[in-house]
Amino acid sequence: MTHATALAVLLPTVALLTVLGTRAAARRHSRPVLDLLCALAAFPVMGALIVAAEVGGAGARLLGLLAILLGSIALVAGFGLLERLSRSGEDAG
């Protein structure tokens, strides 16, 4: 973990900024923040891409590729649903 010192400073700062920004945005309207957060929650597909890109063993590679499949389903469906929602203006939750 070569970036440990930088991360020890950076991550709490990012967390604090996120907490303040999210609180300010959600105080007015929490649903759009929640919708976008659910779509952004598909970011672990990045980890799957990194793992599948580098692993050599057959079993591990299969697991990494399956993770990419599932992650990309969630990524495209999540953002696509929000796009559909913003176009139609429907959905009361």
Partner: peptide, 30 residues
């Protein structure tokens, strides 16, 4: 309604996390 589908999409996201961790577990030297 979009929100229930977004909730259900946490299933593939969770599985993606699990499979990624298992892939690392199976090949930690890489």
């Amino acid at each position: 309604s979009v929100l229930p589908i977004l909730a259900l999409l946490l299933l593939p996201i969770g599985l993606c996390l699990l499979l990624t961790a298992l892939a690392i577990d199976r090949n930690p030297i890489a």
